[in-house]
Design a protein around this nucleic acid. Sequence first.
DNA 1: GTCTATAAGAGGATAGAC
DNA 2: GTCTATCCTCTTATAGAC
Lengths: 195, 195
Amino acid sequence: MARKIGSHSEITGPRVRQAALTLFARHGYAAVSMRQIAAEVGVQAGALYNYTADKQALLFDLMQTHMKDLLVALDACSDTGNALRRLETFSRFHIRYHLDRPDLVFIAYMELRNLSDENFAAVEALRGRYEARLRDILTQGIDERAFSVPDVKVASMAIIAMLTGITTWYREEGRLSRAEVEEIYWQMVRKAVSA
Amino acid sequence: MARKIGSHSEITGPRVRQAALTLFARHGYAAVSMRQIAAEVGVQAGALYNYTADKQALLFDLMQTHMKDLLVALDACSDTGNALRRLETFSRFHIRYHLDRPDLVFIAYMELRNLSDENFAAVEALRGRYEARLRDILTQGIDERAFSVPDVKVASMAIIAMLTGITTWYREEGRLSRAEVEEIYWQMVRKAVSA
DNA sequence: GTCTATAAGAGGATAGAC
DNA sequence: GTCTATCCTCTTATAGAC
């Protein structure tokens, strides 16, 4: 049999990535088959290979694109005031950005070990650049005598772990609004690094 | 061919669980085959079924045992002083216990979605009981006017996420000793909830 | 660009010999 | 209790028709 209706190169590609994203987030990369992804898109398994070299490339594309977008978005909203102000901007940005993309965030943190060595290195480098932005802020805060942080590297990882953890429990229909969650976490971060 | 040497019922069982633990932690439940586990133990795949009903039971046993042991260990070291003292005990216990069992912790946080519905509910209930211990401490601290926490439930999850995050980066041969890490994180927790 | 069909192999789990 | 052998299903990926 021929194609169903016509060609869909511009539309099927994004739908493949979207289906992979949803399924990887829900069941995990290793537990999802190419057939499941194809079924979600509404095509046969073979057709997927017009859009990705293989399953690994699908995962890598999702993670790399996410990390690059994250860095661009952070730089677009970063300001240049004092460290406390910059930390607040970073914290609120991180929470909002991650709550808006729970599936991407989940994959980016959970599927690192399913990347090939080469792909892992590329994603890890991008993660390092993101963390470095926070380390810069903490270092500035120490210079300004505004923060008291025993170890900048450890503190940056602790803060990111705390903030990212929100995505493991936050539900849109839950008790708290995004704004309330943002406020609660920002206050905890602020106090945790305070002098 | 018959058995290699003799019967090993008392020794092979633990070795099967240990092999599953190591491999699940390194590659993920879904990515590990029963054949790989058998190879790690040094038996053929069929022999594993003398020790586990199936692959799912192997995962559930690891996670449930871990959560039960965690609760018992926590209760064994908990004290009854003021909230600040109790929070310090909890924080230091959590860090030590988790650094001593990185593979179990990793699995307990990463493989929840690979549990069957029934098994997930059982493990989740145990996790809830652990979190409740921390919520009790935070509530006491608010009553004592020692803590200022906008939301006890959120704060307990934030603290646990921050502390558990240590296992994703800590390396025995790294720059910081366990005692140093423990101290850094305890100070951050203390300040984060301070009045 | 998508289909059907299939290659080539790995997966979980079981049967029966020893 | 462990082995070998095997069943049956599912897997990724490719080939060729349309």
